[in-house]
Simulated assay, not measured.
Amino acid sequence: MMIDPIISTSAVLALSVTFASAASHKLRHPGWFRRQVHEYELIPGLMVPVAARALPIAELVIAAGLLWSTSRPYAGVLAFLMISLYTLAIAINLARGRKDIDCGCSGPAMQQPLQPALLARNLLLVIIALVALLPIIDRPLSLHDNFVMIAAGLVMVLLYTATDLWIANRPLLLKLSGEK
């Protein structure tokens, strides 16, 4: 199955921005992120500082690697694996009944308790990563095509951000409405 380069490039741009943004807040607040990694209780305590330092660096490498056609397949696979790893970490903690910890998804300014909606959001990211890996139809791209790729990538980032904000604020919205 081959897809149009507009679809693939839009997906790649959105993933790259998402990974760069995720790495940014983790690198700017290393102590906070180290606590987040520790709270998941999935790796031995001695490995927490190493993981907390390695994960955002890996996210930056993925973000950059997605932008070049020669490294895109490798970065796409790594993106798929990283999102799957994060999804598994969330799923394990939800299965343990640990909904009270912050997912660490959006930095220290916006706490998001673990909830099933994060699994659905990450599933969409996995699909976008898989779309970015599909081979593209070889065709010339016009200036209009370039504009559409950038605009579509931006729309995906904005939809991801809006979804993230909704998930983060959902408990508060339910509380305000009187629902549980």
Rank of each mutant, 00 (worst) to 15 (best):
L114S: 09
A14W: 00
P30T: 14
S71H: 03
M47C: 12
A168T: 09
A95H: 15
A152P: 05
D100G: 10
N93H: 08
K99H: 14
V48T: 14
H38N: 08
A75S: 07
V17D: 01
P135Y: 09
T70L: 10
P73Y: 06
S106P: 13
T18G: 11
L159K: 03
V131W: 03
W32H: 08
A168K: 08
D138H: 15
A162S: 13
L130T: 03
L114A: 08
D145L: 11
L143I: 15
L159V: 06
Y86P: 01
A89W: 02
L143V: 15
I62M: 04
R121Q: 04
L123C: 14
I90V: 11
P140F: 05
L154M: 13
M156T: 07
P56C: 03
P5Y: 14
L88C: 14
L176M: 15
N169L: 15
L172E: 11
I3M: 09
G76C: 08
V61L: 02
M1A: 02
P140T: 03
L55S: 13
L134P: 04
A129D: 12
K99P: 07
M47I: 11
V48S: 12
K99G: 11
A168F: 05
R96M: 11
A23W: 00
A54P: 01
C105L: 13
G107V: 04
I6G: 05
Q112H: 01
S106W: 09
A91E: 02
Q115K: 09
R34K: 11
K175C: 11
L67W: 02
V155N: 01
T18L: 14
S8E: 10
L66M: 04
A14Y: 05
D4Q: 14
A91C: 03
H25D: 03
L119I: 12
L158T: 13
L118D: 01
H25T: 02
D138L: 15
A79I: 00
A11I: 12
H144T: 13
V12F: 06
R28D: 08
Y40W: 04
L133D: 01
L88V: 15
A91M: 06
L46D: 09
L134Y: 01
H25E: 00
L94F: 05
H25K: 01
Q111K: 14
V155Y: 00
I127L: 05
T70N: 08
P49G: 04
F147L: 10
S71N: 01
A120P: 06
W68M: 09
A120C: 07
T70C: 09
I137E: 13
S16C: 04
V17F: 04
A152V: 12
S142C: 02
H144W: 12
L78N: 04
E59K: 05
A11C: 13
P116V: 09
I128V: 14
V126S: 10
A91Y: 06
I128K: 07
I6N: 01
G178C: 08
M1I: 02
A117R: 09
K99V: 12
Q111Y: 05
A89E: 04
D138G: 15
P108T: 04
G104P: 02
L119G: 08
P30N: 14
L165V: 11
A64R: 01
A162Y: 14
Q111S: 13
I7S: 07
A109T: 13
L174G: 10
W166E: 04
L123P: 10
A52Q: 05
A52E: 07
A75M: 02
L94P: 00
